[in-house]
Design a protein around this nucleic acid. Structure first.
Lengths: 125, 125
DNA sequence: TTCACGCATCGAGGATCTTCGATCTGAGGA
DNA sequence: TCCTCAGATCGAAGATCCTCGATGCGTGAA
């Protein structure tokens, strides 16, 4: 998550042969395999309705954080399932985990969603 | 896709009983089931590396559009598979399809990615 | 009309994901 | 130390997704 993600690299201009009969040529290089995979991994973290709701419920708390016991009831799923989804979002860099005593508090990473939005706008630049 | 998507509805304030022993109370309603499902559906459209690359390749063309024959080779997949992914992105509102003669031209919907980015920032508001 | 071509649709096989109950780990209290 | 509790981890079952070859549909040329 530390690396900057970019759908396209505008610094490299790639001229393409105009032999094609139907289609417009490329004006720049497309995203490589690793970049696309990393971008897709972040989006996959929000591709499940349960995870979207979890993120929303966490953000709806006044301190911006919530423990697992606060999340199982709103989404109506078992505790192992909620833990599983939370782990996925932590791995994607969307949430942070803070263990305090017996409880684990999850909070939304500041700017993580904005970073994802900025990443998208680069696709059409 | 015509409906506006929002992770949270800030107009409804939901006071919560403070009987919980460990956790912070809610300050506003979280996303409902239908909203979360619709949001997740859009994100799922970009949760696959192949689709991210397809979007990138299409955007990399100078006119901003490309036909299927231009997309199978860059992603290294069969034509039915590419057609399948393109249909998913059209259904998600990320691409538009324009049939001209024997060819079908796909282009990125203007502002679709920005709309998705704005949708994200609302989650932490 | 007949043919060739681009693309969509249709199953099917294999991989991945979601969800669960059962179990393990770690912290705090008696 | 022993017990209780919050949460993570572990298989496993079922659902969903990705991919393909085969086939159907519509367009344009001959």
């Amino acid at each position: 998550m530390a690396t900057t993600l970019a759908l396209t690299d505008v610094s490299r201009i790639k001229p393409v042969d105009a032999s094609g009969a139907c289609c417009a040529p490329l004006v720049r290089e497309a995203a490589d395999l690793e970049s696309a995979a990393e971008i897709a991994r972040v989006f996959k973290a929000l591709s499940d309705p349960t995870r979207v709701r979890l993120l929303s419920v966490i953000a709806a708390h006044d301190v911006g954080e919530a423990c697992v016991c606060d999340l199982t009831e709103p989404v109506g799923l078992s505790q192992p399932t909620v833990s599983h989804h939370l782990k996925l979002m932590v791995d994607a860099g969307l949430l942070t985990r803070d263990q305090r005593g017996k409880w684990a508090y999850y909070s939304v990473v500041p700017g993580a969603l904005n970073r994802l939005g900025a990443l998208l706008t680069e696709a059409t630049s």
